[in-house]
């Protein structure tokens, strides 16, 4: 994780000192940031139209708000319209449909039921000799 941040910082520097660095490689080879199917710059699943989300959704907040979320196409559309009405998100025009399609495909609701099992428990040994 730390490496990614350092990398992101280096990237910023690369943009500002162009004599030292070659032209930024994102437009010509955006997938160079993909590791194990994840876009390491954002944390987005690097499938489908993820570059549209990267380009249009991260001016105000990081992708963490997106990657935490699961929603149907209708749910994603509702959130986008709420951001347009209340939060200053611009009209996405013909990009709205592919953006919603990407979100509804890769960030769909995951069925959890009324209470899910306590998953991902990290077991450790607790010394209880002191207990009475």
């Amino acid at each position: 994780m730390r490496i990614l941040i350092v990398f992101a910082v280096l990237l910023t520097l690369a943009y500002s000192c162009s004599e030292d660095a070659p032209a930024p490689a994102i437009p010509s080879d955006p997938d160079r940031f993909v590791v194990d199917g994840i876009d390491t710059l954002t944390g987005l699943i690097a499938q489908g139209d993820y570059l549209l989300v990267r380009g249009n959704c991260l001016a105000c907040h990081s992708a963490n708000l997106i990657t935490q979320q699961g929603a149907t196409a209708a749910g994603w559309r509702e959130m986008i319209h709420w951001m347009q009405e209340k939060q200053g998100l611009t009209d996405l025009g013909e990009l709205e449909e592919p953006i919603v399609a990407y979100l509804a495909t890769y960030y769909a609701p995951v069925e959890t039921g009324r209470r899910r099992p306590l998953g991902e428990v990290e077991w450790y040994r607790l010394n209880t000799d002191q207990a009475d």
Partner: peptide, 12 residues
């Protein structure tokens, strides 16, 4: 420069 990385951090 300076704008492109707003929010672009996979690792908080």
């Amino acid at each position: 420069a300076g704008v492109q990385l707003l929010g672009l951090s996979a690792a908080p």
